[in-house]
Design a protein around this nucleic acid. Structure first.
Length: 804
DNA sequence: GTAGGGTTAG
């Protein structure tokens, strides 16, 4: 065998070159490892895996031979070199090869190839080696297949091996597979699971939150007389904690306690859960009792807990833990100070934040610019920035002061103190400023060391723009150049945007011209600010001209602007012009979208005719647009309003066939159409079909139907529906009340003296509606008129009105 | 340092 292998290995060029006249001994491994390190970045063989320790030198060499073939791409199962090695395939070799290939893909190809070789069959160790690699690579599908393979192969396994496989499955969430595999091997007698196997399964089930299964398995363990240990109960505790099952978690915790298994991990699970449940006090109590048990939280748990407390703004407890942590001898990191100071700033406990900052300095932790920035933005909010500066100014070198300057500017702007920011900038620029802020004084005294940069100006200019101080922003923009700061595209954009929003179009053009002159390329945003302004002005020709210029830059006009233009034109009765604009846009190569066309359709319908709207609808369909629910709604509405409900129904079917889900608006239009068409039954049928769907009927649906029913002289049904509306939890509004009272008046129920008995529920409804309408300023006068005319009763006289 | 525009009842 040694001879045969020697021949094979010698046939490999790589090995031959690197190993020269090699013998089958450990020298080969060393040189081979070097080879991989240098040229293949391969993990060295025979170091990481326990199993490798037991490999004979033959086995090592065979594994190496396989690997050297496998890492040469591409892998081919019919490679004669591989075939030559088949007689040497053993479980140990397969395991070593799989474990030492860097690529899980190649490992799996090899693993599959091996399973197809005559005379070779995987055992649980090769399966597990592969499973472990697949789980680390998160190859769930392959891992699932492997688990099935294990079961079907009936390969024997001990409880430990079963546990290992279960953990592989569990770690990638294949918990059903783990559970099934467990049962299958147990049932078939392949393996008799022991406590360890069960513990592995419990851990997997717990991680996936499967409480029921955890309970079943635990019971199973108890009934089998298996010994429970710490590792059995810990996942049980975890699953209860994660599910918020407070009592059960506590009872498991107590069992762990009674059995003397309490450790740091168990404590941490419960403490972290308490904090997640918001039971901050209980968490603290538990930490105290841990001390009695001589168990310490570790640093990571402290960190998690403090973070958690800060997140829910329980700074008192966070401070408590922070102190405790330090009492226990942990040295808080700068990131923990960051979290604590950040939390205190958020809660506006600036006093404490500042004192923590001092402590941090005393501990010799350097000034952190992130922490200072947090402090600065809070202190500037509280107007006490000077106190902070007093505290930290002396600790800062000129570089830090310089860095801090922009943070101060940013903090001031962000906290809304744009005036102070502006004063500060002016002071550093050497201009006199009106402001007398202490912050300004600090920096003004050291203005020589402060180098302003583009960011300094950007913060303040943007702040001024947000505050609506466009002209001040423009002045600063002009001045920044003298301080050697470059004007940027961002600044030009923001200023142009500001000008356009104020309809100062000429100045925008001026800035646009200027930015091009200084070699800054306008962006889509720049152009669209101006395009939007032209659209808002309803300047169709201007917009089209500008759009042609934009095309030169390859910039697309934002369709929201075109839509706005179309909508505004339609609003002013210029639907035809709107359509012309769209046609021109298309000719320029810019295609409107379905929303723009919907706006145009709606306009055409309003101003011209239903048919012209429909025509546009058909046209865009033939051009490949897919109308959405709203575009269908627009045409359905048009058809319903003009008594062409059958056509509307046809469109409803069409949209549903396309997979569109009609909205409540769609149904409301149709319901109104049917009501007006005298097809009230159809309308009521529609209502009944809307129940239980996502498109639940709303107050408009009911008001429409109430109106419809009253118009058909069915006041009793209208009142019935009104009751139903209340039962469904749909609150009536002013329009609905109006529809009811008006409707009832129309069918002479109210003024005809046919009111229900005052003790009747319907009477109360009517009275309530009249009250509501009387209370509303928009309807009170017309209600008064109706009362004066004697058409409806004056309910204000009714002093004994029971509440409904 | 980049959005959000089109459709309901009396």
């Amino acid at each position: 065998m040694v001879m045969a292998l020697s021949t094979i290995i010698k046939s490999h060029q790589i090995l031959y070159k690197s190993t020269k006249a090699i013998k089958l001994n450990s020298i080969f491994i060393v040189s081979y490892r070097n080879l991989f390190f240098s040229s293949y970045q391969q993990r060295p063989i025979c170091t990481k895996h326990q199993n490798d320790n037991f490999l004979s030198s033959d086995q090592i060499n065979i594994s190496n031979a396989f690997i050297s073939i496998l890492i040469r791409q591409p892998f081919s199962p019919n490679n004669p070199e591989l075939q030559n090695l088949v007689p040497l395939l053993t479980h140990k070799v397969v395991e070593a090869v799989v474990n030492n290939l860097r690529s899980w893909r190649i490992a799996h190809l090899f693993f599959t190839w091996a399973s197809n070789q005559r005379g070779y069959k995987h055992d649980i160790y090769t399966y597990n080696a592969m499973a472990s690699i697949l789980s680390r690579a998160r190859q769930n599908a392959l891992l699932k297949a492997l688990a099935l393979d294990v079961v079907n192969s009936h390969c024997s396994m001990n409880p430990g091996a079963l546990g290992f496989l279960i953990r592989c499955l569990g770690s990638v969430g294949l918990v059903d597979e783990a559970n099934n595999l467990f049962d299958q091997v147990k049932r078939s007698g392949i393996c008799i699971p022991n406590s360890y196997s069960y513990n592995c399964l419990l851990e997997a089930l717990s991680k996936s939150g499967l409480i029921d299964l955890v309970e079943i398995r635990l019971k199973e363990m108890r009934s089998l007389g298996l010994e429970l240990d710490k590792y059995t109960l810990t996942p049980v505790l975890q699953v209860y904690c994660n599910a918020g099952k407070f009592d059960k978690a506590l009872s498991v915790f107590n069992e762990i306690f009674e059995r003397g298994w309490l450790d740091e991990h168990v404590f941490s699970i419960l403490v972290v859960s308490f904090s997640k449940w918001g039971e901050v006090d209980k968490a603290i109590e538990l930490i105290d009792s841990m001390e009695e048990c001589n168990v310490r939280l570790n640093e990571k748990t402290f960190f998690v807990l403090i973070h958690g407390f800060v997140r829910v703004s329980r700074m008192d407890k966070a401070i408590c833990l922070f102190d405790k942590m330090r009492q226990l001898g942990f040295f808080p990191s700068v990131s923990l100070f960051d979290v604590m100071i950040g939390g205190l700033c958020k809660c506006n406990d600036l006093e404490k934040a500042l004192s923590l900052y001092s402590e941090m300095k005393e501990l010799g932790i350097g000034t952190d610019i992130g922490i200072l920035t947090k402090l600065i933005s809070s202190f500037s909010k509280g107007g006490e920035l000077d106190r902070l500066l007093e505290e930290c100014w002396e600790d800062m070198n000129s570089q830090t002061k310089n860095l801090l300057c922009n943070s101060v500017l940013e903090g001031l702007v962000r906290s809304g103190s744009i005036d102070i920011a502006y004063d500060l900038l002016q002071a550093i620029m050497g201009y006199s400023s009106n402001g007398d802020s202490v912050i300004v004084k600090y920096f003004r005294d050291e203005k020589e060391i402060i180098t302003l940069n583009t960011n300094s100006f950007t913060f303040v200019i943007n702040g001024l723009l947000d505050a609506g101080k466009l002209d001040l922003a423009l002045t600063l923009f002009r001045e920044m150049v003298q301080f050697g700061c470059n004007q940027t595209v961002l600044l030009y954009n923001n200023l142009i945007d500001g000008l356009c929003k104020l309809d100062r179009l000429e100045e925008s053009y001026e800035l646009l011209r200027e930015m091009k002159e200084v070699g800054l390329e306008p962006t889509q945003f720049t152009h669209n600010c101006i395009f939007g302004c032209l659209c808002r002005r309803e300047d169709v020709e201007g917009a089209l001209d500008f759009l042609r210029k934009m095309r030169f830059y390859g910039h697309e006009p934002w369709v929201k602007h075109s839509t706005l233009l179309v909508k505004d034109l339609c609003k002013h009765g210029k639907a035809v012009e709107a359509c012309k604009f769209l046609t021109d846009m298309v000719q320029e190569g810019f295609l409107p979208d379905i929303i723009t066309y919907s706006a145009a359709m709606n306009g055409l319908i309003k101003i011209k005719s239903v048919d012209e709207g429909l025509e546009l609808f058909q046209l865009i369909c033939t051009r490949g647009y897919c109308p959405d629910v709203i575009s269908y709604n627009i045409v359905i509405k048009a058809l319903c309003k003009s008594q062409r409900v059958a056509e509307a129904e046809h469109l409803l079917n069409e949209m549903m066939l396309k997979g569109l889900v009609p909205s409540v608006v769609t149904y409301n239009y149709l319901i109104d159409g049917w009501c007006k068409n005298g097809e009230i039954d159809q309308a009521m049928l529609c209502l009944s079909k809307m129940f239980g769907k996502e498109r639940e009927a709303n107050v408009i649906t009911y008001a429409t139907l109430v109106d419809g029913l009253c118009n058909l002289g069915r006041p009793d049904d209208a009142l019935k529906l009104w009751n139903e509306m209340g039962r469904k939890g749909c609150a009536p509004n002013r329009i609905a009340y109006h529809a009811l009272i008006n409707g009832l008046c129309k069918c002479e129920m109210v003024d005809g003296g046919n009111l229900p008995d005052p003790l009747d529920k319907n009477f109360l409804i009517i009275r309530d509606a009249i009250c509501k309408l009387s209370e509303d300023a928009r309807t009170s006068s017309s209600i008064k008129d109706l009362i004066a005319e004697g058409r409806i009763p004056d309910v204000s006289l009714d002093m004994h009105r029971p509440t409904i």
